[in-house]
Design a protein around this nucleic acid. Sequence first.
DNA 1: GCAAAAGTGTTCCGACTACACCCATGC
DNA 2: GCATGGGTGTAGTCGGAACACTTTTGC
Lengths: 247, 247
Amino acid sequence: MPGRTPRHAAGSSARRILADFKVGVDNVIFSVDTAQNRLLVLLVMRHEDPYVGQWCLPGTLVQQGESLEDAAYRVLAEKIRVENLYLEQLYTFGGPNRDPREAKTSFGVRYLSVSYFALVRFAEAELIADGVSGIAWYPLKQVPPLAFDHNQILEYGYRRLRNKLEYSPVAFEVLPDLFTLSDLYQLYTTVLGDFSDYSNFRSRLLKLGFLHDTGVKVSRGAGRPASLYRFDADAFAPFKDKPLVFI
Amino acid sequence: MPGRTPRHAAGSSARRILADFKVGVDNVIFSVDTAQNRLLVLLVMRHEDPYVGQWCLPGTLVQQGESLEDAAYRVLAEKIRVENLYLEQLYTFGGPNRDPREAKTSFGVRYLSVSYFALVRFAEAELIADGVSGIAWYPLKQVPPLAFDHNQILEYGYRRLRNKLEYSPVAFEVLPDLFTLSDLYQLYTTVLGDFSDYSNFRSRLLKLGFLHDTGVKVSRGAGRPASLYRFDADAFAPFKDKPLVFI
DNA sequence: GCAAAAGTGTTCCGACTACACCCATGC
DNA sequence: GCATGGGTGTAGTCGGAACACTTTTGC
């Protein structure tokens, strides 16, 4: 934290005063519906001013004694039940006049939003409908105009998701322990669009050596049964920091 | 900003109350001394509690009506005079108990730090010594233990710098308009360590086509004079988003 | 048998590595 | 001349793209 020098704040010629902040956390929560080949983002309906009746990203204000990340996990836990997830900080939006409430507030209280990016396993994610609030998975392509600057935050989160997929093994946080290479491939194409031939994707990944063939076969409808693979985190270790592992 | 739902904050079973924040901005300001092949970071000496007499990253608290980025630019402008720079947000550190002052404060005021990463042109960067405060460029390898968690922030900033160099044309923000390919190469090796043969670096970059040879030669001591090149931002455009352009 | 999905192999080509070598200057 | 740094060229190799082909299932 801060190496702030109050001298500047209090002693400058302008004699400006410090702003007081409430800090909010907003989550961009993605999941991939591989069955329908759709990338989904979680939205909730607002029931208070401002922006009543509009969709927005799930968020909350940070409470006393609570870290930013704690707050992010709390929002998530209030909205969905899920076992496996990946979460990381995205960006902090904090200019003045970004929240209509600032105007009405007594004196100069600002609202700042620290956004988080999350990826959850779609199959096991169970939305918590509390009967009042709307909550829904929206296909990314069909997201409506959101409250605040949440469309911007979402856009930012989507960029991060694509980067994460290319460079890091996030995909395995969100796949079952055992998965087929098609599962993996589908996840990638759903998020990134067509980016590579399946057979090339396959051989490239297998050559890297951190996917272990369990030998177990699984048949899904017609076609030849597929092998179930398992991700070996230890074998992946050497590839940390190395650019462009997947893809 | 927030799609916060006060309901959670005020109405949960725990009935916890919102935290009030002061928001600080801390800058990791890098520059590259190509003459001595050193990567430098700007540090300032603290004169107030806590951590009096220790070095830290230059920072400030955000004032009323001021955006986070404005605050970041303000700190920078107070410390150095510089024309060309690159600045972007790094990360937000905001857990409770990260700042000793929180304990003493009246009631639950938290200190949160939004860190920024900057790269400035060393040759033209003139430090502003106000006679009181210590301020200095530190070679990255010789940075002492810093106040707060600033070593951690610095580490984070260094990682970002290396990534930026590989993927984006930040280097040109910090080089003169006209530069030799050796200048460019030196900058890269100083930051990244030895990463490539000079002649390969050279031909790879030239083939990409966004460096224009002005034909003007410049002689620096012994050896054959070098051509001055200019970075063509338009010609670079197609490489945005593309991975690993440099290196 | 045929379609569908999984998995294998092959060919081509561009890019990167590692050098060796030429060029222009200061002294 | 010779040391120094700038600049060019080339041979070998690795890896990715494209695509043809085989295998194993359901129907």
